[in-house]
Simulated assay, not measured.
Amino acid sequence: MSDTARLRKIVHVDMDAFYASVEQRDNPDLRGKPIAVGGAAARGVVAAASYEARKFGVHSAMPSVTAARKCPDLIFVKPRFEVYRAVSQQIREIFAEYTPLIEPLSLDEAYLDVTENLKDMPIATEIALEIRAKIKAATGLNASAGISYNKFLAKMASDLNKPNGQAVITPKNGPGFVERLAVKKFHGVGPATAEKMHRLGIETGADLKAQSLQFLSEHFGKSGPYFYGIARGIDERQVQPDRVRKSVGAEDTFMQDIDDLASATSELKPLTEKVWSYCETKGFSGKTVTVKIKYSDFTQATRSRTTALPFANSNDILEAAAGLLATVYPFKRPVRLLGVTLSALTNEDIAANTDQKQLGFDL
Protein backbone atom coordinates (compact mmCIF):
# COMPACT_ATOMS: atom_id res chain seq x y z
CA MET A 1 0.00 0.00 0.00
CA SER A 2 1.33 3.42 -0.93
CA ASP A 3 1.86 6.13 1.66
CA THR A 4 -0.55 8.33 -0.29
CA ALA A 5 -3.35 5.80 0.04
CA ARG A 6 -2.58 5.21 3.71
CA LEU A 7 -2.70 8.89 4.60
CA ARG A 8 -5.98 9.68 2.91
CA LYS A 9 -9.04 10.33 5.07
CA ILE A 10 -12.25 9.29 3.34
CA VAL A 11 -15.74 9.63 4.79
CA HIS A 12 -18.71 7.82 3.25
CA VAL A 13 -22.01 9.36 4.36
CA ASP A 14 -25.15 7.29 3.82
CA MET A 15 -28.62 8.49 4.79
CA ASP A 16 -30.69 5.95 6.72
CA ALA A 17 -33.71 4.63 4.75
CA PHE A 18 -33.69 8.01 3.01
CA TYR A 19 -36.96 8.13 1.02
CA ALA A 20 -38.89 6.33 3.75
CA SER A 21 -37.41 8.56 6.47
CA VAL A 22 -38.42 11.70 4.57
CA GLU A 23 -41.98 10.40 4.35
CA GLN A 24 -42.07 9.57 8.06
CA ARG A 25 -40.63 12.98 8.87
CA ASP A 26 -43.29 14.78 6.85
CA ASN A 27 -46.24 12.62 7.95
CA PRO A 28 -46.33 11.89 11.70
CA ASP A 29 -48.97 9.18 11.12
CA LEU A 30 -46.30 7.08 9.38
CA ARG A 31 -43.75 7.23 12.18
CA GLY A 32 -42.95 3.92 13.79
CA LYS A 33 -44.87 2.03 11.12
CA PRO A 34 -43.66 -0.27 8.33
CA ILE A 35 -43.77 1.75 5.11
CA ALA A 36 -42.55 1.21 1.58
CA VAL A 37 -42.00 4.02 -0.87
CA GLY A 38 -43.22 2.78 -4.23
CA GLY A 39 -46.29 1.52 -6.03
CA ALA A 40 -48.71 -0.88 -4.36
CA ALA A 41 -49.95 -2.16 -7.72
CA ALA A 42 -49.25 -5.69 -8.89
CA ARG A 43 -46.39 -4.40 -11.06
CA GLY A 44 -45.02 -2.03 -8.43
CA VAL A 45 -41.51 -2.13 -6.98
CA VAL A 46 -40.28 -0.97 -3.57
CA ALA A 47 -37.97 2.05 -3.93
CA ALA A 48 -37.19 2.23 -0.20
CA ALA A 49 -38.36 0.60 3.01
CA SER A 50 -38.46 1.94 6.55
CA TYR A 51 -36.53 0.09 9.22
CA GLU A 52 -39.85 -1.11 10.64
CA ALA A 53 -40.56 -2.77 7.28
CA ARG A 54 -37.05 -4.16 6.95
CA LYS A 55 -37.62 -6.27 10.05
CA PHE A 56 -40.06 -8.28 7.93
CA GLY A 57 -37.55 -8.74 5.13
CA VAL A 58 -38.84 -5.92 2.93
CA HIS A 59 -36.12 -4.15 0.96
CA SER A 60 -35.60 -1.90 -2.04
CA ALA A 61 -36.05 -3.39 -5.54
CA MET A 62 -38.43 -6.02 -4.14
CA PRO A 63 -41.72 -6.49 -6.05
CA SER A 64 -44.55 -4.82 -4.16
CA VAL A 65 -46.63 -8.00 -4.08
CA THR A 66 -43.77 -9.83 -2.38
CA ALA A 67 -43.31 -7.00 0.11
CA ALA A 68 -47.02 -6.99 0.98
CA ARG A 69 -46.92 -10.75 1.48
CA LYS A 70 -43.94 -10.48 3.84
CA CYS A 71 -45.51 -7.61 5.79
CA PRO A 72 -49.33 -7.58 5.69
CA ASP A 73 -49.49 -4.22 7.52
CA LEU A 74 -47.11 -2.55 5.07
CA ILE A 75 -48.13 0.98 4.08
CA PHE A 76 -47.26 2.02 0.52
CA VAL A 77 -46.38 5.67 -0.07
CA LYS A 78 -46.10 7.30 -3.47
CA PRO A 79 -42.57 8.64 -4.14
CA ARG A 80 -41.96 12.40 -4.11
CA PHE A 81 -38.66 12.70 -5.88
CA GLU A 82 -38.74 16.49 -6.03
CA VAL A 83 -38.77 16.52 -2.22
CA TYR A 84 -35.95 13.97 -1.98
CA ARG A 85 -33.85 16.01 -4.41
CA ALA A 86 -34.41 19.18 -2.37
CA VAL A 87 -33.34 17.45 0.86
CA SER A 88 -30.35 15.94 -0.92
CA GLN A 89 -29.28 19.44 -1.96
CA GLN A 90 -29.46 20.58 1.68
CA ILE A 91 -27.18 17.71 2.62
CA ARG A 92 -24.71 18.48 -0.18
CA GLU A 93 -24.46 22.08 1.03
CA ILE A 94 -23.42 20.77 4.45
CA PHE A 95 -20.76 18.57 2.84
CA ALA A 96 -19.44 21.60 0.97
CA GLU A 97 -18.72 23.37 4.27
CA TYR A 98 -16.01 20.79 4.89
CA THR A 99 -14.51 19.89 1.52
CA PRO A 100 -14.87 20.53 -2.20
CA LEU A 101 -13.94 16.88 -2.83
CA ILE A 102 -17.45 15.40 -2.83
CA GLU A 103 -18.41 12.45 -5.01
CA PRO A 104 -22.18 11.86 -4.91
CA LEU A 105 -23.22 8.26 -5.60
CA SER A 106 -26.96 8.95 -5.43
CA LEU A 107 -29.35 11.31 -3.68
CA ASP A 108 -28.64 9.71 -0.33
CA GLU A 109 -24.93 8.90 -0.24
CA ALA A 110 -21.56 10.40 -1.10
CA TYR A 111 -17.82 10.07 -0.59
CA LEU A 112 -15.93 12.98 0.95
CA ASP A 113 -12.15 13.34 0.95
CA VAL A 114 -11.35 15.27 4.14
CA THR A 115 -7.59 14.66 4.14
CA GLU A 116 -7.24 18.40 3.76
CA ASN A 117 -10.48 20.11 4.73
CA LEU A 118 -11.92 23.59 4.90
CA LYS A 119 -12.25 23.46 8.70
CA ASP A 120 -8.63 22.39 9.29
CA MET A 121 -9.93 19.56 11.46
CA PRO A 122 -7.29 16.83 11.85
CA ILE A 123 -9.59 13.96 12.90
CA ALA A 124 -11.95 12.54 10.28
CA THR A 125 -14.20 10.88 12.84
CA GLU A 126 -14.94 14.27 14.37
CA ILE A 127 -15.76 15.66 10.94
CA ALA A 128 -18.19 12.81 10.37
CA LEU A 129 -19.83 13.43 13.75
CA GLU A 130 -20.25 17.14 12.98
CA ILE A 131 -21.68 16.47 9.52
CA ARG A 132 -24.19 13.97 10.86
CA ALA A 133 -25.26 16.40 13.59
CA LYS A 134 -25.72 19.22 11.07
CA ILE A 135 -27.75 16.96 8.77
CA LYS A 136 -30.01 16.05 11.70
CA ALA A 137 -30.43 19.71 12.68
CA ALA A 138 -31.13 20.88 9.13
CA THR A 139 -33.33 18.04 7.88
CA GLY A 140 -34.48 16.07 10.91
CA LEU A 141 -33.01 12.93 9.33
CA ASN A 142 -30.41 10.45 10.51
CA ALA A 143 -27.23 9.67 8.60
CA SER A 144 -24.63 6.99 9.10
CA ALA A 145 -20.97 7.31 8.19
CA GLY A 146 -17.93 5.20 7.53
CA ILE A 147 -14.40 6.53 7.89
CA SER A 148 -11.31 4.91 6.46
CA TYR A 149 -8.20 5.41 4.37
CA ASN A 150 -9.86 4.42 1.08
CA LYS A 151 -13.25 4.44 -0.62
CA PHE A 152 -13.93 0.71 -0.45
CA LEU A 153 -13.38 0.47 3.30
CA ALA A 154 -15.22 3.74 4.03
CA LYS A 155 -18.23 2.35 2.17
CA MET A 156 -18.05 -0.93 4.09
CA ALA A 157 -17.64 0.92 7.40
CA SER A 158 -20.79 3.01 6.90
CA ASP A 159 -22.90 -0.17 7.11
CA LEU A 160 -21.38 -1.41 10.36
CA ASN A 161 -23.34 0.70 12.83
CA LYS A 162 -26.50 1.56 10.91
CA PRO A 163 -28.82 3.20 11.56
CA ASN A 164 -27.65 6.54 12.98
CA GLY A 165 -24.09 5.47 13.72
CA GLN A 166 -20.59 5.53 12.36
CA ALA A 167 -17.54 3.30 12.31
CA VAL A 168 -13.84 3.59 11.53
CA ILE A 169 -11.60 1.10 9.75
CA THR A 170 -7.96 2.06 10.31
CA PRO A 171 -4.99 1.21 8.10
CA LYS A 172 -3.88 -1.26 10.75
CA ASN A 173 -7.23 -3.04 10.82
CA GLY A 174 -8.21 -2.78 7.15
CA PRO A 175 -6.56 -5.92 5.72
CA GLY A 176 -7.79 -8.10 8.59
CA PHE A 177 -11.33 -6.73 8.27
CA VAL A 178 -11.40 -7.65 4.58
CA GLU A 179 -10.03 -11.14 5.18
CA ARG A 180 -12.89 -11.97 7.56
CA LEU A 181 -15.61 -10.58 5.31
CA ALA A 182 -17.76 -12.78 3.06
CA VAL A 183 -17.18 -11.78 -0.56
CA LYS A 184 -20.94 -11.52 -1.14
CA LYS A 185 -20.90 -8.53 1.24
CA PHE A 186 -18.19 -6.69 -0.67
CA HIS A 187 -19.36 -3.43 -2.21
CA GLY A 188 -18.98 -3.91 -5.95
CA VAL A 189 -19.53 -7.67 -5.87
CA GLY A 190 -23.03 -8.37 -7.15
CA PRO A 191 -24.95 -11.65 -6.89
CA ALA A 192 -23.66 -13.00 -10.21
CA THR A 193 -20.01 -12.22 -9.37
CA ALA A 194 -20.42 -13.63 -5.86
CA GLU A 195 -21.82 -16.84 -7.32
CA LYS A 196 -18.91 -17.08 -9.74
CA MET A 197 -16.47 -16.58 -6.87
CA HIS A 198 -18.21 -19.30 -4.88
CA ARG A 199 -17.86 -21.71 -7.81
CA LEU A 200 -14.14 -20.95 -7.77
CA GLY A 201 -13.95 -21.68 -4.04
CA ILE A 202 -13.74 -18.02 -3.02
CA GLU A 203 -16.02 -17.44 -0.03
CA THR A 204 -14.18 -14.83 2.05
CA GLY A 205 -11.71 -12.00 1.67
CA ALA A 206 -8.98 -14.40 2.79
CA ASP A 207 -9.90 -16.77 -0.04
CA LEU A 208 -9.77 -13.86 -2.47
CA LYS A 209 -6.40 -12.74 -1.14
CA ALA A 210 -5.01 -16.23 -1.76
CA GLN A 211 -5.59 -15.87 -5.52
CA SER A 212 -2.94 -14.48 -7.85
CA LEU A 213 -3.42 -11.36 -9.92
CA GLN A 214 -3.19 -13.51 -13.05
CA PHE A 215 -5.93 -15.86 -11.80
CA LEU A 216 -8.28 -12.99 -10.93
CA SER A 217 -7.64 -11.23 -14.23
CA GLU A 218 -8.30 -14.42 -16.18
CA HIS A 219 -11.62 -15.01 -14.45
CA PHE A 220 -12.85 -11.45 -13.84
CA GLY A 221 -11.22 -9.41 -16.60
CA LYS A 222 -10.78 -5.72 -15.86
CA SER A 223 -12.16 -6.20 -12.35
CA GLY A 224 -9.35 -8.63 -11.50
CA PRO A 225 -6.80 -6.00 -10.38
CA TYR A 226 -9.48 -4.24 -8.33
CA PHE A 227 -10.39 -7.46 -6.50
CA TYR A 228 -6.68 -8.22 -6.01
CA GLY A 229 -6.24 -4.83 -4.33
CA ILE A 230 -9.30 -4.74 -2.08
CA ALA A 231 -8.52 -8.27 -0.85
CA ARG A 232 -5.45 -6.61 0.69
CA GLY A 233 -7.31 -3.53 1.90
CA ILE A 234 -5.94 -1.47 -1.00
CA ASP A 235 -8.11 0.87 -3.08
CA GLU A 236 -6.41 3.90 -4.56
CA ARG A 237 -9.41 5.30 -6.42
CA GLN A 238 -9.66 9.03 -5.84
CA VAL A 239 -12.79 10.86 -4.72
CA GLN A 240 -13.96 12.41 -7.98
CA PRO A 241 -16.10 15.53 -7.53
CA ASP A 242 -16.48 15.95 -11.27
CA ARG A 243 -17.31 12.32 -11.98
CA VAL A 244 -18.67 12.16 -15.53
CA ARG A 245 -22.13 10.68 -15.88
CA LYS A 246 -22.07 7.91 -18.47
CA SER A 247 -25.77 7.69 -19.32
CA VAL A 248 -29.26 9.02 -18.64
CA GLY A 249 -32.21 6.68 -18.66
CA ALA A 250 -35.87 6.21 -17.81
CA GLU A 251 -38.08 3.14 -17.77
CA ASP A 252 -41.62 2.16 -16.94
CA THR A 253 -43.34 -1.07 -15.95
CA PHE A 254 -46.87 -1.27 -17.34
CA MET A 255 -50.04 -2.13 -15.47
CA GLN A 256 -50.89 -4.56 -18.27
CA ASP A 257 -48.58 -6.25 -20.75
CA ILE A 258 -48.49 -4.74 -24.24
CA ASP A 259 -48.47 -6.88 -27.37
CA ASP A 260 -49.04 -4.39 -30.22
CA LEU A 261 -46.43 -2.05 -31.68
CA ALA A 262 -48.55 1.13 -31.71
CA SER A 263 -49.30 0.93 -27.97
CA ALA A 264 -45.70 0.14 -27.14
CA THR A 265 -44.41 3.00 -29.28
CA SER A 266 -46.74 5.47 -27.56
CA GLU A 267 -45.20 4.49 -24.22
CA LEU A 268 -41.78 5.63 -25.44
CA LYS A 269 -42.78 9.30 -25.63
CA PRO A 270 -42.89 10.08 -21.88
CA LEU A 271 -39.64 8.18 -21.41
CA THR A 272 -37.78 10.15 -24.09
CA GLU A 273 -39.22 13.41 -22.76
CA LYS A 274 -37.99 12.58 -19.26
CA VAL A 275 -34.51 11.76 -20.55
CA TRP A 276 -34.34 14.91 -22.64
CA SER A 277 -35.61 17.11 -19.80
CA TYR A 278 -32.67 15.97 -17.68
CA CYS A 279 -30.23 16.57 -20.53
CA GLU A 280 -31.54 20.10 -21.07
CA THR A 281 -31.19 20.86 -17.37
CA LYS A 282 -27.57 19.70 -17.37
CA GLY A 283 -26.66 21.16 -20.77
CA PHE A 284 -25.62 18.00 -22.59
CA SER A 285 -26.87 15.44 -25.07
CA GLY A 286 -25.74 12.04 -26.30
CA LYS A 287 -25.04 10.09 -29.45
CA THR A 288 -26.28 6.62 -28.50
CA VAL A 289 -29.87 5.72 -27.75
CA THR A 290 -30.71 2.31 -26.31
CA VAL A 291 -34.13 0.75 -25.93
CA LYS A 292 -34.67 -1.98 -23.33
CA ILE A 293 -37.57 -4.38 -23.76
CA LYS A 294 -38.53 -6.67 -20.89
CA TYR A 295 -41.06 -9.36 -21.74
CA SER A 296 -43.76 -10.99 -19.61
CA ASP A 297 -41.44 -13.88 -18.76
CA PHE A 298 -38.79 -11.36 -17.51
CA THR A 299 -36.42 -12.08 -20.38
CA GLN A 300 -35.20 -8.92 -22.03
CA ALA A 301 -33.61 -7.50 -25.15
CA THR A 302 -31.81 -4.26 -25.94
CA ARG A 303 -31.32 -2.43 -29.22
CA SER A 304 -28.97 0.54 -29.72
CA ARG A 305 -28.27 3.15 -32.35
CA THR A 306 -25.33 5.55 -32.47
CA THR A 307 -25.44 8.76 -34.48
CA ALA A 308 -22.64 10.92 -35.86
CA LEU A 309 -24.01 14.01 -34.08
CA PRO A 310 -25.62 14.42 -30.63
CA PHE A 311 -29.40 14.24 -30.55
CA ALA A 312 -30.91 17.72 -30.75
CA ASN A 313 -34.32 17.22 -29.12
CA SER A 314 -36.68 14.66 -27.60
CA ASN A 315 -38.47 14.07 -30.90
CA ASP A 316 -35.24 12.87 -32.51
CA ILE A 317 -34.63 10.51 -29.59
CA LEU A 318 -38.22 9.27 -29.85
CA GLU A 319 -37.87 8.65 -33.58
CA ALA A 320 -34.70 6.63 -33.06
CA ALA A 321 -36.19 4.71 -30.13
CA ALA A 322 -39.34 3.90 -32.08
CA GLY A 323 -37.25 2.59 -34.97
CA LEU A 324 -35.29 0.36 -32.60
CA LEU A 325 -38.47 -0.97 -30.99
CA ALA A 326 -39.87 -1.85 -34.41
CA THR A 327 -36.90 -4.14 -35.06
CA VAL A 328 -38.11 -6.57 -32.38
CA TYR A 329 -41.74 -6.63 -33.57
CA PRO A 330 -43.62 -8.95 -33.66
CA PHE A 331 -42.76 -9.32 -29.99
CA LYS A 332 -41.83 -12.84 -28.96
CA ARG A 333 -43.96 -12.30 -25.83
CA PRO A 334 -46.06 -9.43 -24.46
CA VAL A 335 -43.99 -6.51 -23.16
CA ARG A 336 -44.10 -5.62 -19.45
CA LEU A 337 -41.43 -2.89 -19.36
CA LEU A 338 -39.76 -0.43 -21.71
CA GLY A 339 -36.70 1.70 -21.06
CA VAL A 340 -34.85 4.40 -22.98
CA THR A 341 -31.23 5.33 -22.25
CA LEU A 342 -29.07 8.04 -23.80
CA SER A 343 -25.32 7.50 -23.60
CA ALA A 344 -22.07 8.64 -25.25
CA LEU A 345 -22.87 11.91 -23.50
CA THR A 346 -21.35 15.16 -24.67
CA ASN A 347 -21.73 18.89 -24.12
CA GLU A 348 -21.13 19.72 -27.77
CA ASP A 349 -23.23 22.56 -29.17
CA ILE A 350 -26.40 20.61 -29.88
CA ALA A 351 -28.25 23.68 -31.16
CA ALA A 352 -26.10 23.63 -34.27
CA ASN A 353 -27.27 20.11 -34.96
CA THR A 354 -31.00 20.80 -34.92
CA ASP A 355 -31.38 21.12 -38.69
CA GLN A 356 -28.76 18.56 -39.59
CA LYS A 357 -29.80 15.07 -40.55
CA GLN A 358 -28.82 12.46 -38.01
CA LEU A 359 -26.52 9.95 -39.67
CA GLY A 360 -26.38 6.72 -37.72
CA PHE A 361 -25.79 3.03 -37.66
CA ASP A 362 -26.98 0.24 -35.43
CA LEU A 363 -24.61 -1.46 -33.00
Rank of each mutant, 00 (worst) to 15 (best):
D252F: 04
T253A: 10
Q256V: 13
D257L: 01
I258T: 06
D260P: 11
D260V: 09
A262P: 06
A262M: 11
S263P: 03
S266A: 14
E267N: 08
E267I: 00
E267Q: 10
L268P: 07
K269H: 13
T272L: 07
W276F: 05
S277I: 04
T281A: 11
T281K: 14
T281L: 09
G283A: 08
F284V: 12
S285E: 01
G286P: 01
G286I: 04
V289D: 04
Y295K: 08
Y295P: 04
D297T: 07
D297V: 08
Q300D: 15
A301L: 09
R303F: 03
R303H: 06
S304T: 07
T306A: 13
T306M: 11
T306Y: 13
T306W: 10
L309W: 14
P310D: 08
A312R: 12
A312H: 14
S314D: 08
S314L: 03
N315Y: 12
D316T: 07
I317A: 01
I317L: 10
L318W: 07
A320T: 15
A321W: 03
A321I: 09
G323I: 06
L324H: 02
L324F: 05
L325E: 00
A326V: 08
V328Q: 13
Y329V: 10
Y329K: 05
P330V: 11
P330E: 09
F331I: 05
P334E: 02
P334D: 02
V335C: 02
R336E: 08
R336A: 04
L337A: 09
L337T: 09
A344N: 15
L345F: 11
L345D: 12
